[in-house]
Amino acid sequence: MAADVSRVSYRPKLLLFAAATLVLVLLALLPLYIGLYQTQLLTYGLIAAIAALGFNLLLGYTGLLSFGHSAFFGIGAYSVAFLLRDAGIRSMELYILIGLPIVALVSALLGYICVRHTRIFFGILTLALSQVVWTLAYKFFWLTGGSDGLRVARPDLLAGMFTFTGGGAFQRFISAYYYYVLAVFAICVAVMWVIVHSPFGKALQAIRDNETRAAFLGLRIRRFRWVAFLISGTMTGLAGILWVPLNGLTTPEVLYWTFSGEIVFMTLLGGFRNFTGPIVGGPLFTYLKTYAVATTEYWQLLLGVVLVLLVMLLPTGIVGALSVATAKLWPKEKSA
């Protein structure tokens, strides 16, 4: 018998909220048991998860595969570097408050061009436009530092409550910054969860599955895709804003198409047809790449093999495969 959909059931949402809180508490406790290096690595992983989460609004929910998200990540990173160098701003909150509208504006402009097409044409357009941004960063040496990039000092956190100078500054920064990124990560997950479960999010899924029918329900397809692109690019840009103080340097490398490929990779690794896939894929890819680089000089080959195996054996990603296995072991009735 089907579930009674006329009544709203809050139980699944409460369970989900409890599980998310538990994961958040575990993540908050982790630095107490792992070393500084692992904490730093995990911070990179959470930032990657934010980038992948944003990217997956386009791929998983709207059905558009972008090969140009490095542009938004890089623009986020460079906007921080410019704010520090040219305006002397050292506040992380100001980096976010000023950087986000910049990334949103660029996403809106590039999105306006790209969403006029779908499938391979969309992918190629995003790739081409991101390469234009990369070329600008690479060639405009006087502005961007060219291939040397721009250095970014450790910012002040929470309106100057936490500053990082003097002895042990690096250790204190890594510890504090982890919690800062964790908080932003939690907000991003909550925001994205609401978006994909909103009427707007349902409309995106409808457009992904059947564009013609969605149009005949009165949906303005291109406009929905454009808004999805805007949100997606902005969230990936936020990841770039968070990434650069941790890395201490931004170079044109983060604008290059191979970095877009890494965002695609981490999303596929976790699974793009479910909400938690990119959240898992981001940190997992960060660890995989870090240890592959440390283990062998042929690390690209190793990552390539993993990608091939992933596509062949786990096309729905790790979380997707686990979901299928769980559903087989504990079948349950779906509720609306």
Partner: peptide, 30 residues
């Protein structure tokens, strides 16, 4: 011409959201 991945309920709800111009709501759970 349906949205096969969505539930039967969600299929019809989408029509109603669209008609009521609630389909653009982004900060509310459907």
């Amino acid at each position: 011409n349906l949205f096969d991945v969505l539930t039967v309920f969600d299929n019809v709800a989408l029509s109603i959201f669209s008609r009521e111009r609630k389909i653009v709501k982004i900060a509310a759970l459907a």
